[in-house]
Amino acid sequence: MKIRLDNVVKEFETFRAVHGVSLDIDSGELVALLGPSGSGKTTILRMVAGLEYADAGAIYFGDENATDIPVRERGVGFVFQHYALFPHMTVGENIAFGMKVSKIKRSPQAIAARVKELLDLVQLSGLKDRFPGQISGGQRQRVALARALAVDPRVLLLDEPFGALDANVRRDLRRWLRKIHDELGITTLFVTHDQEEALDLADRVVILNKGKIVQEGTPETVCRSPADAFVMNFLGDANRLEAEIRGGKAHVDGIAFEADGIADGSGQILFRPADVTWREDGQGIAASIVRVIDRPDSRRVLAMTRSGQAVEFDTAPEFPHRRGDAGFLDIRRPRVYAAA
């Protein structure tokens, strides 16, 4: 099922949480909505589900305008951030709930068979008669997914599906969700504020800031060509140096960087800590070392440029220099943007 959002707007009282978002999701695609807290991810997801009504714009499921279809009839599977399992029902009853209340009448045997099939799919066959309070967080997450899948939804929506789990469980469940998605081929939209999760799992990443889409594309596109300083910062550690742009060049402390197509005025240069080489002679921006921090596989160096701007970079563990040493920062892959 294709999903299309056309200029969707949502306001809470006077606060505009979503500003005219347009988005196309192909049938069978796995798309991540990525953004900082409060950027409107959950709100968008809830509008797609029908749990929240859009104030303007339209949402299409295939060719059908789904904007005014109530949640009940929209045919979406929604997985809540805190699972929202029914605490008074067993795992089996939770999964069966959607089939029991459905307008499509199923025999108890058919329901039981489907519950078993779903429990196998989420690898929880032995836990059918436990209550949600008696299973772990990761298991609850999988029950929530099975429950959502039980009604054969046209679209699967997940709100921070791994948010409440610890790092190892997250990684496992992530790979596992990808596998299930590939098996079932169901159009899936999930929300996360964890860039690693989005890049790891999604076919396409949609990055949001303050209720607007700032960039969308494959993980490769957003990583290799961040559209602006926000995306660059949000996707990972980044250094920022103030620069002055003159005639297609960005100048910092007397060093010039390529800045094609950026208007003259103040600008900024962003680069990753891994894209800096420390040199003792000549090349690069003059700086001195402020602190050296040891990490299991590398050394993080904090330096200060001559104009007083802080830069952090990563080096091999054998990096010999210490606090106070002077040298030069040789920057690879700098990205130049106009000042915010």
């Binding site: 009940r72 029914f86 009604v151």
Partner: peptide
């Protein structure tokens, strides 16, 4: 909300 999204009245 979960119950409604699963189709319950």
């Amino acid at each position: 909300e979960a119950a409604t999204s699963l189709g319950a009245s």
